[in-house]
Simulated scan of single mutants.
Amino acid sequence: MKFYIEEIRYCGPDGRTDKYIDFDRFEITTEPTRTNMTGEVCLDGWLGMYDDVTRYAHGGYDSLAAADYAIQNLLGDEYRLDDEPSEFPDVLAVYRPGRLPPMSDETLGIWLQDVDVPADADNAALRRQARDLASELEDMGVSVSVVRIWLCLESLRDDAREELED
């Protein structure tokens, strides 16, 4: 039996929404990877795109351990194995990039509603606050980049400034 690695990525406009924020994955499967246009077996490279989802093949392996090792080399230390089994019987394992699942923009916006952002905060203060919040979110088991948090804090600060002017 051979084992194959397929990378699946969402590349559409809604990448930070709840539906797609943790969509990207690498799967180890017992079925050879095939192009989506011709259905031909393709073990290395681009397989095609459909509905803003693109697929790539990353080789065929003689053992599950060899395929697992290949994924570790592709993703480095920053990956996690899905706990839930796939709905497809030929998919043996699903790996997601990142040590922690990411938080969507919608969920981040809701979470930040209770955060106090002073209208007079300068950019340095916002960066410090963003780092602290990113650390807090990581402790909660999710990841959000400091830059994404900082941009949201800037927007909240600008809203606070507008309220003062009115």
Rank of each mutant, 00 (worst) to 15 (best):
L64G: 03
A65I: 14
A65Q: 15
A65W: 06
A66Q: 15
A67K: 15
A67R: 15
A67T: 15
D68M: 12
D68Y: 13
Y69A: 12
Y69M: 12
Y69N: 13
A70M: 12
A70W: 06
A70I: 14
I71C: 02
I71V: 15
Q72I: 08
Q72T: 10
Q72R: 15
L74Y: 04
L74W: 00
L74S: 01
L74K: 10
L75K: 11
D77H: 03
D77G: 02
E78P: 02
Y79R: 13
Y79D: 07
Y79K: 13
R80T: 09
R80K: 14
L81I: 14
L81A: 01
L81D: 04
L81G: 01
D82A: 13
D82F: 08
D83Y: 12
D83P: 02
E84M: 11
E84H: 12
E84Q: 14
E84N: 13
E84K: 15
P85F: 02
P85K: 10
P85R: 12
E87T: 14
E87V: 13
E87W: 03
E87R: 13
F88A: 03
P89A: 03
P89F: 03
D90I: 10
D90F: 07
V91T: 15
V91A: 00
L92E: 05
L92Q: 11
L92N: 07
L92F: 00
A93C: 05
A93G: 03
V94T: 15
V94Q: 10
V94N: 06
Y95E: 06
Y95N: 02
Y95W: 08
Y95R: 10
Y95A: 02
R96D: 00
R96P: 00
R96I: 08
R96S: 05
P97S: 07
G98C: 03
G98A: 04
G98P: 04
G98L: 03
R99K: 13
R99M: 01
L100T: 10
L100D: 02
L100Q: 11
L100K: 13
L100Y: 05
P101R: 15
S104F: 01
S104M: 07
S104D: 03
S104W: 06
D105P: 04
E106W: 05
E106P: 06
T107V: 14
T107A: 11
L108W: 01
L108D: 02
L108R: 11
L108T: 03
G109H: 08
G109S: 12
I110F: 07
I110Q: 06
W111V: 07
W111Q: 11
W111L: 08
W111C: 06
L112D: 00
L112I: 08
L112M: 09
L112R: 13
Q113R: 14
Q113Y: 08
Q113W: 10
D114N: 08
D114V: 09
D114C: 09
D114R: 13
D114I: 08
D114E: 09
D114T: 09
V115M: 09
D116Q: 14
D116M: 12
V117G: 01
V117K: 02
P118H: 11
P118N: 10
P118E: 04
D120P: 02
D120R: 10
A121I: 04
D122H: 05
N123Y: 04
N123K: 11
N123L: 10
N123A: 11
A124N: 05
A124G: 06
A125L: 07
L126D: 01
L126G: 04
L126T: 08
L126I: 12
R127T: 04
R127M: 01
R127Q: 06
R128N: 05
R128M: 00
R128C: 01
Q129L: 09
Q129Y: 01
